[in-house]
Design a protein around this nucleic acid. Sequence first.
DNA 1: GGCTAAGCGAGACGGTACGTCGAGTCTTTGT
DNA 2: ACAAAGACTCGACGTACCGTCTCGCTTAGCC
Lengths: 196, 196, 196, 196
Amino acid sequence: MSQPLGRPRDSRVDEAIATAARQVLAEQGYARLTVDAVAARAGVGKAAIYRRHATKQQMIFAAVMHDLDLATPPDTGSLATDLAAITRDILAALATPPPGVVPALLADVHADPAMAAAFARTFVRAERDCVTEVLERAVARGELPRLPDPATVHALLLGPIFAWLFLLLEDPGKAPAFADTLARGVGHLLGRDGGA
Amino acid sequence: MSQPLGRPRDSRVDEAIATAARQVLAEQGYARLTVDAVAARAGVGKAAIYRRHATKQQMIFAAVMHDLDLATPPDTGSLATDLAAITRDILAALATPPPGVVPALLADVHADPAMAAAFARTFVRAERDCVTEVLERAVARGELPRLPDPATVHALLLGPIFAWLFLLLEDPGKAPAFADTLARGVGHLLGRDGGA
Amino acid sequence: MSQPLGRPRDSRVDEAIATAARQVLAEQGYARLTVDAVAARAGVGKAAIYRRHATKQQMIFAAVMHDLDLATPPDTGSLATDLAAITRDILAALATPPPGVVPALLADVHADPAMAAAFARTFVRAERDCVTEVLERAVARGELPRLPDPATVHALLLGPIFAWLFLLLEDPGKAPAFADTLARGVGHLLGRDGGA
Amino acid sequence: MSQPLGRPRDSRVDEAIATAARQVLAEQGYARLTVDAVAARAGVGKAAIYRRHATKQQMIFAAVMHDLDLATPPDTGSLATDLAAITRDILAALATPPPGVVPALLADVHADPAMAAAFARTFVRAERDCVTEVLERAVARGELPRLPDPATVHALLLGPIFAWLFLLLEDPGKAPAFADTLARGVGHLLGRDGGA
DNA sequence: GGCTAAGCGAGACGGTACGTCGAGTCTTTGT
DNA sequence: ACAAAGACTCGACGTACCGTCTCGCTTAGCC
């Protein structure tokens, strides 16, 4: 069909922008990141950034999401261990970015409908699929009598970890232990009833 | 001792600033709130604002926190109903501010150590005390064999509600039902063991 | 050599700034001129102004100096008429700007070394060259036996006119007559001796 | 008539303000002088200043004029020596205040009619009276056939000195020599004709 | 090889808000 | 009623950043 006319985009520029953004984010923090700084660090003009991203926020979102692997969880054989794997993945995803970046991006998501759509499409959707997959496996195994509401279970898994890290300002070092406790608790709850 | 010299601060100005900030927040949203607009609306100079608050963010934080009643929960007679009351209070606190304000303030809290301290001192501390109080009552009643970790329980209550509202972008209309489900689930979990 | 990289400055912006500054100066006076007003009038951002001028004062200075023609005086054939031409030029230069602008700029010049340098380089230098040229012509004609000190003559011409307009608060309508009297007086003085 | 009711003004406060103003003027320069700084230095509230002076500029004007003695010139016996005495007095009056203060005050005078009136009433009037007195003496002595226009002579004496110091940015060390040259020149000019 | 279209780094542009500062006024408590 | 202290309104300052645009140039594909 329409082969793009003119000079094609240089994919190394995409990479340079994302890398520079992550570096500036790590060194300066979210609030002090400026588009000029990212452009300078990437050795790139600002126009090259705005040709790829509509706003600064979307650029950061893309850069942070880029190296976040939200892969499907391997079947570990039991609901309990599957849930533990999910909480560990969630914790990793939330704890990897530099301090303050996750809350800041969340604020941006609520300020920009386009970002909200992208957020729902990528992050929420990916995790939701993981949860659903794990629950369906448990039903198939006979561990659960019927499928609980995936949204509810998702909230029960993601919420407490987010709260531990960003709402309660608790020691991040204790987060892995808390994540395990959480997985165990949710496992028991699901075993008791099918998610009332 | 020495009562402060000079003209004392006019407490009506404090009130006018907080009220104006909430109005602008409601009408324009967090991102479009400007200090000039708040000052104009309050019939106050910008200097009067910056004499009370170090940054725009701290002004908004104070204005939003101001009319958030984080009172101690009344004793409803059982752990289950006490927990339900707490989840309702948490939901009310999170759902009251205009859309987008809570995530934005959370981002500000993580960007400014002074705000983080204030946040921990007021919001987190108040809720934590509620949770601790409720758990101690249950222990006194004999509903629980021993006191669970309040931080963990706090995370289990606050986290999922926050996730439902701000992370999963689920229907806010279903939040009250979810909050009740959550309270029931946490009640069962605590009844099973003392919060492993 | 290397032509400057990036988008070149738009010379129409320079012009718009200078014109707007002169208009606001004429309408509001020096004390009520604000950079925002100039920017708005010029249809220009404040950054465009501060990219060209370090301070508001330097912007005004440049705008006022811009349309001040300090051209070399034509040879009128005699020292007396040449001097009269110079005093008329000086009077025109001092009387053209809106009321109060000249004293205000003079104060700025004494408050900012950069402006002092610019003032010496442009206004003082230009007038000094005129005076020197006229004196040298008179020497060449044989009207003067030797070259008087140009600085002294300059002070004798410029000073009284400035004093008449801005120090003594005399009737500006009588300034042209005074300027002629002055030129005649200085002519006689130079004719008597070579400027003792 | 009306003896002032209530507590009378403390004249030591007047003195403290004037002294503090001159000190700050000397240490910080005109542009960096603030009313708060003067008040603090004088150990006085801002209200005490504004009870005495309508504006900051008028306060400075009063403080600077205060220690400027514009006394009547003694009769030195000849027009030439009288003129030299006047130029020396003018030079002293202009050179005494800290650098930049004279031009700044001149600008203020042109921005505020009340100051213009005060300026004309004190400084201009005092000098004009000196000039007139000297000229009348010369007429009485028979040195001059008739009285020249005092305003013109005033401009011829004051203007060049002002120009030397503040317009041409010439070496202030050479100002006394220039003042003498000027007095001699004006003397010759007046001797030749009665001030055409 | 020339033409067209889009890419590229650099940096100026219009705009908007920030947080600061100063002037001049007002409101305390004292004397 | 005057005094010191200091909070008040008002309004401008100069800075910073965003997202857009314009420059001269390079890099493709298509004639």
